[in-house]
């Protein structure tokens, strides 16, 4: 370059040059759409027509009286609750067991964590096949004598949401196990020895040593799972698209249908804002908890 690197101008220019690529892409393709989604939510735009009118809070008023929105909202909560029970509850139990095993640990851990890296689209295809009326799940139930529980999982209004939540948990629980394992490494071994000397059973030392020590990590995993499950789109879209009827409709699929497929763009944007608010708030809590844990 023709610029003397020691000159004042170069000193001033440096930060700009270093920041520009990241900041430019980030503002145009992340910040701007975030501001736009709020703006569009106050319009009646159909997504195609060049003119749009500002209609104030009308989309939000519609949101509050829209029965399908509340159904999707309720479903999203149920869906998240099931995933939290599995990822936090079972994840914690599995992690604390894994921490006490040495020989087979790596292979068991690999089997549990591997699904995390697999594409949600692949997860959807796998489970759609497993959940078929004559699929693997029903065949296994038959063989182990639980044939009475056989059901067309993804076609059943009662089962579909839970079935999909289990499939999603299968592909995400590994992450909670990893985080719990990292937390367990920080627990003082002496506490376990002391508990053992005091005659505590393994179950008691889990209850009185592991659980209290892991409380901060548990909070982190809880809120992380909550945010993640609110954002899900792929696996539901690729299996049921919210069906049968609307029994597995969640906020993201409903937003996609209204905004992208039915040209109700402004209204779709309002659903997007609802999602944005919920997830951002949860993420702020998550980051606070994580900071506290690190310090």
């Amino acid at each position: 370059m023709f610029l003397d690197p020691d000159s004042k101008l170069a000193q001033r220019l440096n930060p700009v040059l270093f920041l520009l690529p990241a900041v430019a892409i980030y503002i145009l393709f992340a910040i701007y759409p975030t501001i736009s989604v709020v703006e569009y939510s106050f319009t009646d735009w159909d997504g195609i027509n060049p003119n749009r009118n500002y209609i104030g809070l009308e989309n939000y008023e519609r949101l509050f009286s829209d029965k399908i929105f509340w159904e999707a909202f309720r479903n999203t909560f149920v869906w998240s609750a099931v995933i939290i029970v599995i990822n936090v509850g079972l994840g914690l139990v599995i992690a604390s067991m894994l921490a006490r095993v040495w020989k087979a640990r790596l292979i068991i851990q690999t089997a549990i964590v591997l699904p995390v890296v697999i594409s949600p689209m692949a997860v959807a295809t796998i489970w759609r096949w497993m959940y078929q009326p004559k699929g693997a799940v029903n065949q296994v139930l038959e063989v182990i004598g639980l044939g009475a529980f056989k059901t067309p999982w993804l076609g059943s209004p009662d089962a579909v949401l839970y079935a999909l939540a289990v499939a999603h948990s299968w592909s995400t629980m590994g992450l909670s196990v990893i985080i719990f394992l990292a937390g367990l490494q920080a627990v003082d071994e002496h506490l376990y020895e002391a508990a053992k000397i005091d005659g505590a059973s393994p179950l008691q030392s889990f209850r009185f040593v592991t659980l209290p020590a892991l409380r901060p990590v548990t909070a982190v995993v809880f809120i992380l799972t909550l945010t993640q499950s609110f954002k899900v789109f792929d696996i539901v879209w690729a299996t049921t698209q919210g069906g049968p009827i609307r029994f597995s409709e969640i906020l993201s699929t409903y937003m996609y249908k209204r905004g992208a497929l039915e040209n109700d763009y402004g209204y779709g944007a309002a659903i997007g804002v609802a999602l944005l608010v919920i997830v951002s708030l949860a993420t702020i809590v998550y980051m606070q908890l994580q900071n506290r844990q690190e310090s």
Partner: peptide, 20 residues
């Protein structure tokens, strides 16, 4: 500004992102 990016779910902003 970068901190905000940690909180934006892709799902929520997909419609305007497509427009842009």
């Amino acid at each position: 500004l970068f901190l905000v990016g940690l909180m934006i779910p892709v799902t929520a902003i997909i419609l305007p992102l497509y427009s842009i």
